[in-house]
């Protein structure tokens, strides 16, 4: 039980996530996400791909893995330039909020090493560590973030019934635990081997396609 975890994972934590749709804005406009069922399918895919990858990076950062190596690993796991830019922008905003909450020389060092922003998942893990949270909690926060943002965005994009949307998230909750658990075990192995190789690198082709297309749109509701 941790108040710090609830704070870090809260959608109202001022880290800028509310302005991003995680690809669902394109999926909605393409007609691929149109109701609660297709939203659930989208979120399942996102959770088990980029969500798992982010959870592994966050857990490894919280577990004390060298942040520079994790930043390189995150770059390689993000082939879309639009998504790399988004991740660093969100990382910078999250780091600002985290330094205000949990002053820590490691966070100061990260900010100095990455003036343009470090990857969001790496910052999340280090913020969790600074807040006294365990790697498993960092992984859970990252997994939560990977579905909560797009679900909220979808309420606005489709005008879906918020009760239906929150029910979708509730049904996904056990899978969040599974993903966070797999990410935490992988992170422990990465730390033991001092090698990022065991960390998940799961990807989804359409999320990369969506992100590049979205960045070319002139008119959009969300920043990504």
């Amino acid at each position: 039980m941790s108040g710090a975890l609830l704070l870090l994972a809260d959608g109202r934590f001022p880290a800028g996530g509310h302005a991003h749709s995680g690809g669902v804005e394109v999926a909605v406009r393409a007609g691929l996400v149109k109701d609660a069922d297709s939203l659930a399918a989208f979120l399942t895919g996102r959770l088990h791909t980029t969500g798992l990858t982010a959870a592994g990076l966050a857990a490894a950062a919280a577990d004390g893995f060298d942040p520079t190596g994790l930043d390189e690993a995150a770059d390689a796991r993000t082939p879309s330039p639009a998504l790399r830019a988004t991740s660093r922008r969100l990382g910078r905003q999250l780091l600002r909020a985290a330094r205000a909450c949990w002053p820590d020389p490691v966070l100061d060092g990260l900010a100095a090493a990455h003036p343009g922003g470090a990857h969001q998942s790496v910052v999340l893990g280090l913020a969790a560590r600074a807040a006294g949270l365990a790697p498993a909690e960092a992984a859970l926060a990252a997994a939560h973030e990977s579905v909560n943002g797009p679900a909220t965005a979808c309420t606005r994009l489709l005008g879906l019934d918020p009760y239906q949307v929150v029910a979708v998230l509730a049904r996904l909750a056990p899978e969040l635990d599974t993903v966070a658990d797999a990410a935490t075990r992988a992170a422990a192995e990465a730390v033991r081997r001092q090698d990022a190789w065991p960390l998940p690198a799961a990807s989804a082709p359409l999320l990369d396609l969506f992100a590049e297309r979205h960045s070319a749109w002139k008119v959009r509701l969300f920043a990504s």
Partner: peptide, 24 residues
């Protein structure tokens, strides 16, 4: 330097593989 590291899991048994985030 690591410049690309990418896993994919597609087909029956892979969660969400046929859904709108992965292959649609």
């Amino acid at each position: 330097r690591l410049i690309l590291d990418q896993q994919s899991d597609l087909g029956p048994g892979a969660p969400g593989w046929d859904g709108p985030a992965v292959l649609a």
